[in-house]
């Protein structure tokens, strides 16, 4: 009886993940077989020409996305970790209002932020630059990061901080040498999500970096679809490679997301 359920589960998962399989299958399909009817269900006459095209044409885009992603992670951590420490442990006046604003900020549609950023970036000259895109992408992650960090840091035992204070550590020292190391798992969680959102961002890239010299991979795929819509194996190969960070996140974050949300990680 128990294997019945596993069998149904496998079928459901198969149906759900069929588009992902299809993306991989098409990425290996030869140009000449692309419009064959019926299509090949398995990449039997597989080719790597799609992936070769990625290596030839998409590497600069992947590089730009990597820089934007890492920059977004750095900016997000820099802004959100101290704020969360303050909200969780230092009881600032007006902290509740700030938390509320952060909650609201998550709900603002990206397309509206993009229009405001466009007006500002145009007049300050950061339009079509990587730093501009990093700033815009970080708005996707900062509210989430502060909320996650606050939830986690609230769980750090008061005794630990009290002990540091007794040893003569100031507020900053306590933050740097006690709170941050203890929060390692939530830092990893926040970093992974911030990276993934920056890596996946299309709204800001297509509005704020459309004419840039260094464009992220989402625009790489978008131009691909627009320009040569015959080369679907190359488009899908790029899509497969663009999905790598998500896959890594799924494998690693399984552990860290759980660790970050349940604040029990104080033990290590």
């Amino acid at each position: 009886m128990r294997y019945w359920k596993t069998a149904i589960g496998l079928v459901l998962t198969g149906v759900m993940l069929f588009p992902v399989y299809w993306m991989i299958n098409v990425s290996f399909t030869r140009e000449t077989d692309m419009r064959k009817s019926p299509p090949s269900w398995f990449p039997v006459n597989g080719t790597l020409e799609g992936y070769r095209a990625v290596l030839d044409q998409q590497l600069p885009y992947l590089g730009a996305s990597l820089v934007v992603g890492l920059g977004t992670v750095a900016l997000t951590l820099l802004v959100s970790a101290p704020a969360a420490y303050s909200l969780a442990k230092l009881r600032p006046r007006g902290g509740g209002v700030l938390s509320f604003v952060l909650l609201i900020a998550q709900m603002i549609p990206g397309i509206i932020m993009a229009m405001g950023f466009y007006a500002i970036f145009l007049s300050t000259g950061v339009l079509n630059t990587i730093p501009g895109l990093i700033v815009a992408d970080s708005t996707l992650a900062v509210p989430f990061a502060v909320l996650i960090f606050t939830a986690f840091m609230s769980g750090i035992p008061e005794e630990l901080l009290q002990a540091a204070r007794t040893d003569g550590a100031g507020t900053f020292r306590t933050f740097w040498s006690i709170v941050l190391p203890v929060s390692r798992n939530s830092i990893i969680t926040v970093s992974l999500f911030a990276f993934l959102w920056a890596w996946s961002d299309f709204v800001f890239a297509s509005t704020l970096d459309q004419g840039g010299d260094h464009q992220p991979i989402t625009l790489g795929i978008y131009h691909y679809i627009g320009n040569n819509n015959q080369q679907w194996n190359a488009i899908m190969a790029t899509a497969v490679i663009a999905s790598v960070p998500a896959t890594i996140l799924l494998i690693i974050a399984q552990r860290y997301v759980a660790a970050g949300v349940t604040a029990g990680a104080v033990k290590d």
Partner: peptide, 26 residues
């Protein structure tokens, strides 16, 4: 049931993929 945790994790894939990837695949 057997494998339920693994399969549940696999269900997360569509949500983690960049939207441009899902959109172009569809």
């Amino acid at each position: 049931f057997r494998l339920s945790a693994t399969l549940r994790a696999l269900f997360l894939v569509p949500w983690l993929l960049p939207l441009i990837v899902s959109a172009s695949t569809w």
